[in-house]
């Protein structure tokens, strides 16, 4: 492949998670990481980023589905269709791969909506799939978070998995490791099937 393997994400956590995940399970080595500051900036950047790509480049885009997966998908689809891409109505559950429009020189594009292209949610929803299923500590973290008195809950319902995961990470041998490092330290299991799907999508996407 003559082009570059590019990855466009919303923030630093996504970048670290993807790097460590790919490092732990034979995922691709990225040539360029591009993190924008949140979804609005990413949607603005996406067309410019694609237009500025060089011959043979392939661009993976990973964003949170957030509360409304359909709306997020439409926002992405809209940006891509304006450049002439043909985008399916709904995301492929195993990760979407979109070929460049015929006659254009835009890159091949992959889209992944966290957590799994099917459910609403965020990066941390995906990471909870990587928590060892037999973790009693995680169940304890869950009940702790769920036991927060109602008038003390300061995060939006969407952010529950984030609170959960950081609570759980706060109670490891080395408390407070960031998300990416938690994969490297194997607190989170990079060989979980959901992680395998993501890696498989990236490998299929970049295999040209």
């Amino acid at each position: 492949m003559i082009g570059r393997k590019k990855l466009l994400v919303e923030g630093i956590d996504d970048e670290h998670v993807l790097k460590h995940l790919c490092g732990a399970c034979n995922g691709p080595v990225f040539d360029e990481f591009r993190k924008s500051d949140g979804i609005e900036k990413l949607l603005e950047l996406l067309p410019v980023f694609l237009k500025a790509s060089n011959e043979g480049d392939v661009v993976a885009v990973i964003v949170d589905a957030d509360t409304d997966l359909d709306a997020r998908w439409d926002a992405l689809r809209n940006r891509l269709e304006r450049l002439g891409y043909t985008v399916p109505d709904t995301p492929d559950p195993s990760g979407t791969i979109i070929e460049p429009p015929t006659g254009s020189f835009f890159p091949r594009v992959g889209l992944w909506l966290m957590p799994n292209n099917t459910l609403p949610g965020i990066l941390e929803d995906f990471l909870t799939f990587l928590v060892p299923p037999d973790s009693a500590l995680f169940r304890h973290a869950c009940s702790s978070v769920d036991g927060i008195p109602e008038n003390e809950i300061r995060f939006a319902p969407l952010m529950r998995p984030k609170a959960l995961l950081h609570t759980w990470l706060a109670w490891q041998e080395e408390p407070g490791k960031p998300l990416g490092t938690a994969i490297k330290a194997r607190f989170l299991d990079p060989h979980a099937p959901e992680a395998g799907e993501l890696i498989d999508w990236l490998n299929r996407l970049y295999a040209v």
């Binding site: 591009r34 924008s36 900036k41 603005e44 950047l45 067309p47 410019v48 980023f49 237009k51 500025a52 020189f105």
Partner: peptide, 18 residues
């Protein structure tokens, strides 16, 4: 490849190579 003014603003802010 054509970049309009608003796209250029994004490109320079994000340092996308144009």
């Amino acid at each position: 490849t054509f970049f309009e003014k608003d796209e250029l603003r994004t490109a320079t802010r994000e340092r996308v190579e144009v």
